[in-house]
Design a protein around this nucleic acid. Structure first.
Lengths: 222, 222, 222, 222
DNA sequence: CATGAATGAGTCTTCATTCAT
DNA sequence: GATGAATGAAGACTCATTCAT
């Protein structure tokens, strides 16, 4: 991922069934190679080999190595964003605590469903071309969260977009830590509860401020 | 960063003043090249050129390209960890709200002091060799946070290590978002306040539970 | 054109009308691709696509890429040679000045009729396989010119073959210059007259030598 | 030679003696490979191998394959142009017949001195990048010829630039024919005399027109 | 010690050609 | 017959690393 975001699109639209299968195989292979070898050793030849085809075939579907990686990343981000959007739209108008738990649950679920994929793609996301895609996915999710927050019956957010952004990145941080595998054994098990606690507390901080700006100090400080 | 973590140490300890200066120049050059060209185009020749020396000289100080990058990353992480440790040890025994604000302040300050460096090194951190270093730095910070939390007079943490871990990654997420430059204009300005709010709320959630497990529900839910 | 001259013939003789049309389409497409992309990017796939067919079909008509290019070149050279032969045979026995103007006129006419084709094929002619074809075409033209010259009533050529050869290449040089497009604006307009002047003068030099070998010096030198 | 004329310059100026030798070796090797294998098989690896070095070294001196070929072509054209310029400037003010013979002699001499080089470079000249260089060399030569012609004491040229252009291409045609090796045995031997005759006649045609426009017809036609 | 030229393995990418559908 | 996906050899170019000067 070191190309400008332009022209990272696939070469042919997968109209035929065979194409769909081939592209799917390439995506899977890319993630496997990425996982096993790392981004810098994730070469077109290796991807093709693992996908059981020749390099030439890979280039029949993608004009660049980066276009392939971008497609994989995009697909992943699309799935994650869709899940988040779904959760957010389903929980509009609910109390913030419910929002918090729904959001955490949904985000953790998608990211952990294919944890290998999630983990492998962090490296891709780092590259020039990847950053733009990540930004787009994030924008979708932040927008969804923002909309959900704005609909909360029991809290008011002065700047819901800002809160949405913080919310998103607050989820992203711990999940990345978890996925990168450097977390201790019990981490995953307890993460969900902690995140729900965290997000609930964060959103409720706004609730308290709304109800009684003065009371917040009372509630939060000794 | 595509080598196994072993043998990433500099070749000669910088006993002489000249060495120190040279190594410093290399580190700065590495970050500049990293920023301008990206990890894959961050070559030894380019780094050496920007540092005003020849490739050969670079190899006098580092056995590998990866050893150089690792050293830069390590230095950065060391600085960040040290700052966090300092803040944590200075705020042991203070109320959690003070801890929250001190921690957020310190972490944001170090990461944003040399934001170019921070940003550039995310790519290095992603690599095989980088992950281990990052893990080590994180361990230091989490340990410091854990110790600080355990000393809180106004809160009790059942699993302070877990809370420390969440705390750390909750800070890391938004800061990464900020550094990666995809945040909107006002983000940086408001981030600190939001993070303090967030962390305070999170830690206070434990305080409330401690004081009166039953009351938490009362405080957090409508 | 990088194959040895052997086996550059089309695969099937175009007996059917469809074949003729297909082959014609391929030739046209080849010249277009050659013009737009250059020899090295003039691939079989691109030619076929531009001709509105699949690569496979191309290979139904030509065993090689080079066979196709050779055929195009050959066709072109055939046309040029035929035009020159016609002009030469029609002007046998005429005075050299008439020969000169007829030859120049005919040669310029054919080469400029499809100047895109003429220009595009220079690159093909340069290749291994092309040189032989070019040589053959040239031989035909030189032979025609030689025969015409030998029939001149008002001049005698000691070595008409030699003169024919020079004649041919003297025409080829300026025309190539013109076609390659690096000639200034007025060049084409004035070229014909200049070439007629040139060729007439050249052939007349032989006439003068014949009439009075001594006088040539008188006529040519001050 | 399929690149736009930009950025075909060598990478490092040959300051050191070793560099000069290396570059010279590359030029010679390029011509040899070009001669033996043809342009399409004239690969960087082959050139480097024949020059007794590795590909990497080649790329230390030239950023592209095309830059190398362009440099070889440029050097060749520079030599040819210089020789023509010298001949032209040395024969300013002389009678046209003397100009004719000096020019033909000089041009043949340079082109035949390294006939292998001359021949090999026709293919390079055909490419996109080559055409521009050829045009430049031609411009130099045409300018020199034009200036010489304008200084003729015994002839007047209405459009000396046009005449210069024709003159140049009239020399280029036969010499190319000769170099391409498809000329019969005696061709080279007799070419010089024929070209002098041709050019003299061509230039004298202008002389006659000048002296007595009416007489030209008388002299040229029966 | 510094230098920077040389090395050559390793990447990406293209393209002629084949062949199953 | 037509199609166009698959193949894989081959080419351009890069870069970490070494070592003679």
């Amino acid at each position: 991922m070191s190309t400008t975001a332009a022209a990272l699109k696939p070469r042919k639209s997968p109209v035929q069934a065979r194409s769909v299968a081939t592209i799917e195989a390439l995506h899977i292979a890319a993630i496997q190679v990425l996982t096993k070898e790392g981004l810098s050793r994730c070469t077109t030849t290796r991807i093709a080999a693992r996908a059981g085809m020749s390099v030439g075939s890979l280039y029949q579907y993608y004009p660049h190595r980066d276009a392939l990686l971008a497609a994989v990343l995009e697909q992943h981000l699309g799935g994650v964003a869709a899940a988040v959007e779904r959760a957010c739209s389903e929980h509009r108008g609910t109390p913030v605590s419910e929002m918090a738990s729904a959001l955490v649950t949904a985000y953790l679920a998608v990211k952990l469903r294919n944890s290998a994929e999630s983990k492998a793609l962090y490296a891709v996301a780092e590259g020039r071309g990847g950053a733009a895609l990540v930004a787009r996915g994030r924008r979708r999710m932040v927008a969804a969260m923002t909309a959900m927050l704005a609909s909360a019956p029991d809290a008011h957010f002065d700047d819901p977009a800002m809160t949405g952004m913080v919310l998103f990145s607050v989820l992203a941080g711990p999940v990345r830590l978890l996925l990168e595998g450097h977390a201790p054994a019990g981490f995953e098990a307890r993460l969900k509860e902690q995140l729900i606690l965290l997000v609930t507390a964060f959103l409720n901080a706004h609730r308290l401020r709304q109800e009684n700006p003065g009371r917040m100090a009372a509630a939060l400080l000794p």
